[in-house]
Design a protein around this nucleic acid. Structure first.
Length: 434
RNA sequence: GGAGAGGUGGCUGAGUGGUCGAAAGCGGCUUCCUGCUAAGAAGUUGUACGGUCAAAAGCUGUACCGAGGGUUCGAAUCCCUCCCUCUCCGCCA
């Protein structure tokens, strides 16, 4: 949520910043509503004041006889008008609030211009692309290795649900543990939150009210399956005032994530990279405004270190203003190399939200030098999407015979197994080369 | 699921329909005092949104005692609805 005062005082500046998103966000309406809202509030307060005066007269016993009746009827009269004014006030407040909640964050000045992904810029590229002759897709390899069972996933749930079998299940778990351990060592404290959350939490991190149809919602309870650990973890401190000396707070969390993928029809229909349910380790930071930029860089770097440890070729791109998510003021995507697709695909998205989420979720801190609570800054990023990491490993580590080498850092998490092989029976086997 | 208790300021906790933004204690802040630590004394201390002001301070208005309604000139206090928390019982990994 943008600062209403900022909008009120610098409407043109805010409007210009939002225009960079090319998404039709306009604050003109907000400015108008705000103006009438404050006017009506003035009227409402005047009525209240008079009413308070009247009851004060009764209180001090200064009125008697006739006077009392007169005041009573005046008060009744006031009340009628109050009802109308209150109704208007309420209506305007709600309108203002929903408008404010539906306006995206203003892009940071360092974010490049552009309308869509065409204008995203490569920041740097890491790793050497593997030389593989006619590489197989991860889902082809995975089917032979017996690590994915796509058909049964559909049978027991729906399309875009996949069952991991055997070494697939183990690899997924290995990735999860490896990532959590790595981040813990780097100072992120681990959190394992609820994976169902209430509406307030989703409003706090910006998914609602604008993206209502994107999430799975329980029919009989006001609860949603989390689309990302960002939601429960960021909302941990909702409506709290933290101490500056405890900042920055760094958390890492594993959760499954659930997304309806509305609007993705036809995209990535094969394979494991766009699922309704997928696993992810998320990094979340709470910082002061002064340090958020540096912490954002560090967090992005922490995500990259996972890719480097797995020896997966990747590149970092900075999203242009038009391609950034709703809440972000600045965002880097990490893209990992998929040999069979012959391109880089997103595996992590690391965003600085400034005080946008903090304002929504009422996340504040008390400055060390004293003074009023200030909104803190929130930053988060995937560290990493586990399913995509697994798919990338299958493709990048594939051998001529259809076997797949396990990245070294994962072997301790896989019982020392260094390679998985397809078997004629269709069941995968593990071979220890060490 | 059944029965009961309760939601008040950063925390604990009192509160008779008006003098209650709300006692008291703790904590926080400021000052004083004792050579240090600790203790002691006095004062001060809610938030939001408006108005005034170049701005801050100050002053000032309104709202806020879980949420929303109702009764009343007037509600933390009475009534209704909802939400949440806790305890006991049942069920359960």
């Amino acid at each position: 949520m943008l600062d209403l005062k900022l909008i009120r005082e610098n409407p043109d500046q805010v409007e210009a910043a939002l225009a960079r998103r090319h998404a039709g966000f306009s604050i003109r309406e907000v400015v108008d509503i705000d103006q009438s809202f404050r006017q009506v509030q003035g009227e409402m307060e005047a009525l209240n004041r008079r009413n308070n005066e009247i009851s004060d007269l009764f209180k001090t016993g200064k009125v008697q006889g006739d006077e009392k009746e007169k005041l009573r009827s005046e008060s009744k009269e006031l009340k009628k008008r109050q009802e109308e004014v209150n109704e208007e006030h309420r209506r305007l407040e709600e309108a203002l609030q929903t408008r404010l909640l539906s306006i995206a964050n203003a892009p940071d000045p360092s974010v490049p211009d552009g309308k869509d992904e065409e204008s995203n810029q490569v920041v740097h590229v890491w790793g050497e692309l593997p030389q593989i002759e006619s590489p197989l897709h991860h889902y082809e390899l995975g089917a032979d290795l017996g690590v994915f069972d796509f058909e049964r996933g559909v049978k027991i749930a729906q399309s875009r649900f996949t069952v991991l079998m055997n070494w697939g299940a183990k690899l997924e778990r290995a990735l999860m543990n490896f990532m959590l351990d790595s981040h813990s060592e780097r100072g992120y404290s681990e959190v394992f939150p609820p994976i169902m959350v209430n509406r307030k939490s989703l409003i706090g991190t910006g998914q609602l009210p604008k993206f209502e149809g994107d999430f799975f919602k329980c029919a009989d309870d006001e609860l949603y399956l989390v689309p990302t650990a960002e939601v429960p973890v960021t909302n941990l401190y909702r409506d709290e005032v933290l101490e500056e000396e405890n900042l920055p707070i760094l958390h890492c969390a594993y959760t499954p994530n659930f997304r309806r993928e509305a609007g993705s029809a036809g995209k990535d229909t094969r394979g494991y990279i766009r699922q309704h349910q997928f696993n992810k380790v998320e990094l979340v930071k709470f910082t002061t405004p002064e340090s958020s930029e540096a912490e954002h860089e560090k967090l992005t770097r922490d995500a990259e270190l996972i890719l480097e440890a797995l020896k997966l070729p990747y590149r970092r791109i900075i999203l242009c203003a038009g391609d950034m998510g709703f809440c972000a003021q600045k965002c880097y995507d990490l893209e990992v190399w998929f040999p069979a697709q012959n391109k880089y695909r997103e595996i992590s998205s690391c965003s600085n939200f400034g005080d946008f989420q903090a304002r929504r979720a009422n996340l504040r801190y008390k400055p060390a030098g004293g003074g009023k609570g200030r909104y803190l800054h929130t930053i988060n990023g995937s560290g990493l999407a586990i399913g995509r990491a697994m798919a990338a490993i299958l493709e990048n580590y594939q051998q001529k015979d259809g076997s797949v080498v396990i990245p070294e850092v994962l072997r301790p998490y896989m019982g020392g197994v260094s390679e998985i092989k397809p078997a004629s029976s269709g069941k995968s086997q593990a071979v220890s080369i060490v």
